[in-house]
Design a protein around this nucleic acid. Structure first.
Lengths: 211, 211
DNA sequence: CGATACACTGACCGTTCGTTCAGCGCGGTG
DNA sequence: CACCGCGCTGAACGAACGGTCAGTGTATCG
């Protein structure tokens, strides 16, 4: 059965509410984004939101999952590119920078959900739904790193720590890019990250000396 | 003039309120930490807090500045150690890991203030007081990196981006350590970070091949 | 065209939280 | 001992917010 007219309208509403939520959270921050303002941003009444989402928590949660799903789709492609470890790493970093560049307003929501808030019951709920998304990202990168270690392409180090270091380090650069009026081309920052993580920043003594 | 008795009592109150604030924020998160609970944690009445802090914002702000001051004191020492760039870098990373290890509960507050919240007026106020603290840390590290670049010890890269990458990457590892029951010794993680940033993770082809 | 269904509205409710302030108890003073 | 000053208290207040629901407007159908 094709989508009925109601479904189309409903999907449109859900989508525009989620987009409004992302914009408001981006402006005011997670804690100060009110249902009233999200409704105004979406051009509807507050009550209408509750026809599509049970409560505020569900709105935030679903919005997060919908958008982070986009990131994961891109990463899927990057993870499955054949080629050297370096090429795959470059593809992964490029996917991340590209995603946040096109979804700059989502960044605030993403950042807020890193550490759960509220009563311990709420914290547990948030952990169940949002943390797995972060974990999945870290674990997949860690797996790639582990493979490269076993293949002798990369030094033996704790893969999880390395993945965290890389992801959060990149995130910091994304954040810097977002705050700049005229950031350098994306590829330049990708190169900085990839070359730093692969080769380090030190100039080896043999190269440094005139010899 | 020596400290009067009143001053001593007053300082004690201020300090214990700030410590209570850090503990409650650590448990509940910034947005859900109430004045009531902070007062209970400090063993005083809610109204008493207002004898020492104008309002909630000032409490948070002063608490942040007092504690981050501790970190900066340690970094001062690390920045001024003589020796090679590698030694100074190691001292800086060690100082950061050590600080957050001894102030684990402060981490939540630190993280929350990275991105300002609330109305644009509140955001401007937070930016004026908290962001300079982050900026200062980034800029100082960037300066060290620049020096090393000019000295030919380090490749020419954007120092600010490198500093951000390094600081946030380390922060991710701090966060991981805080969530672990039995984290590895601090020195191990310091080594991971320093060796990765200096030499990278790749095993160079000449070393890898049997040749 | 009148009846029915239903998405939508926004005033309203209960709750929570920051902030205030009248009053309390206690240590010091004459 | 009576009085006073003052640090402290916590009930009370108002603002703000999430969530509700009786009512309204409109599209659809007989």
């Amino acid at each position: 059965m094709a989508k009925s007219k109601e479904d189309v309208v409903s999907e449109f509403r859900v989508q525009s509410i989620q987009e409004a939520a992302i914009r408001v959270i981006s402006r005011k921050g997670m804690a100060s984004a009110t249902m009233q303002e999200i409704a105004e941003e979406a051009g509807i009444a507050k009550g209408t939101i509750y026809l599509y989402f049970r409560d505020r928590e569900e709105l935030v949660e679903k919005t997060f999952e919908t958008t982070i799903g986009e990131l994961h789709k891109r990463l899927d492609v990057a993870f499955e590119t054949d080629g050297t470890f370096e090429e795959r790493l470059r593809a992964i970093i490029t996917a991340q920078l590209g995603f946040f560049n096109e979804n700059r307003e989502f960044f605030r929501l993403y950042h807020s959900l890193r550490m759960p808030e509220g009563t311990s019951a709420q914290q547990r709920r948030q952990k169940r739904t949002c943390q797995p998304q972060f974990q999945a990202r870290v674990d997949r990168l860690a797996k790639i790193l582990k493979q490269a270690m076993d293949a002798g392409e990369v030094r033996q180090l704790d893969p999880k720590r390395l993945a965290l270091f890389l992801i959060e380090g990149s995130t910091a650069i994304v954040l810097e890019r977002l705050s700049e009026d005229a950031p350098p081309p994306e590829s330049e920052d990708v190169e900085l990250i990839v070359s730093t993580i692969l080769g380090g920043i030190a100039i080896s003594k043999s190269k440094r000396s005139s010899h």
